[in-house]
Amino acid sequence: DDADMLASLKRVEDAEGRYLKSDRNLKLTYHSVGVVRGILTSILHKALHRLYEDAGWHPIVFFAEGTIYVGNDERRLEENLNNLEEYIAQELRSFVQERSKYGVGEKAVGPITQRVIRSPEYLYISENTVIEFWDAVRRQNSIANPNVDRISHISESEAKELIGLYNLLIYLTEVVKQCNKDKDAEEIFKCIFRREFPNVSEDVLNYILSSKIANIKPIEEKIRIAKLFREGLETRVREELLDDVVERFKRITNELREFGEKYHGIDYNAKARELMNDVSYPRFRVDTEMWDAYIHGKKKGTPLCVLCSNRATT
């Protein structure tokens, strides 16, 4: 009988107020979510499954828009639903962390002529996203093979090397700028920079901290600062030199990561609060108004639900 009853439920809402005949202590309840989005919808479902299960309710029937659960402790469920925001935020956080194994850090990189850190929220997630970020920077033409005008007294290949180095400094300057709202971060940066580049002039450090390194600077100044930086590096061929500098920049960025995340990370709780609007469950009360048809703010035509094609009335 119970199996027939469960199989005959057409929508999650049909579960409301029901119980299992085989054990009258076991009640049914449900959650449902708006199904307009993609991965965020599946994250919401996962968060809600975890929330219900932690309250002792077991998922038993699954629909695209929600899940029916069986259990008996309504008080514990009600208490747990107060933590809905935390559950969603936690699920988002672990999804993004997990996801950061697959190239999220690359998405943070912008071209040297525009915002060089296009999506800072994807840079500071983990050690791995920092590595991906710098590897993606390293592959940019502006680093590996920059266009250079003819510059007097130096060869084209030397000019390419120096401009490549300078452009790397632009990326580092932006990283430091984003973490620098904290005075602690500035001190930490100074220490690590001196540790990673013991023979580089203190002037280079000061140029970075005062944000004097940028793409709009005249070419002579770029070359001058790059030479200053180059003098403090062990002499190597261009490819190796750039690789080595990038490795050191990765370590520097990783030590600044907590500061970057504080100011530029993803606000998981804010996202969770927005997503909560997509969730409904039997005891979740919102003010609703019933209309003959939903017309407020609509200029012309009959507004139909994009999912079920019925006239919207709530």
Partner: peptide, 11 residues
């Protein structure tokens, strides 16, 4: 584009 849809598109 709403902030959730933007977030979704980046994910």
């Amino acid at each position: 584009i709403c902030s959730l849809c933007e977030f979704e598109s980046k994910l």
